[in-house]
């Protein structure tokens, strides 16, 4: 097992080499060589498969949070005094 690890490290396809590439592949189109290194590593490493799934989940959820009509944090709202202040300013300025 240690020998396989050393070989993967030498070939630059260890978990340490691959995890930044998995993240990078989410940000821009990566080279064919990098794609291949990810593919080979994921084919043999369950831990990095989990890592990739975790990053995909975070990506999906981040988009949900960003939606203008996100129903999360419904308990948060503008202070009533400020709402009144804005309404008042709108009336006097319109």
């Amino acid at each position: 097992m240690k020998m396989i690890g050393a070989l993967l490290k030498q070939l630059k396809i260890s978990c340490e080499d691959t995890s930044p590439l998995i993240s990078e592949s989410m940000d821009h189109r990566i080279s064919l060589g990098k794609k291949l290194r990810i593919k080979i590593h994921l084919a043999i490493c369950g831990a990095c498969q989990c890592y990739k799934t975790q990053l995909d989940i975070i990506k999906t959820l981040a988009r949900k949070l960003g939606a203008e009509d996100s129903d999360l944090k419904n308990e948060v709202s503008l202070r009533p005094e400020l709402k009144y202040k804005i309404k008042h300013s709108l009336k006097t300025n319109s």
């Binding site: 240690k2 690890g5 050393a6 993967l8 490290k9 260890s14 978990c15 340490e16 080499d17 831990a47 990095c48 989990c50 890592y51 799934t53 975790q54 989940i57």
Partner: peptide, 11 residues
Amino acid sequence: SGHWRIFPKDW
């Protein structure tokens, strides 16, 4: 050897 010390968990 470049392996995770703590393996990522299956969520």
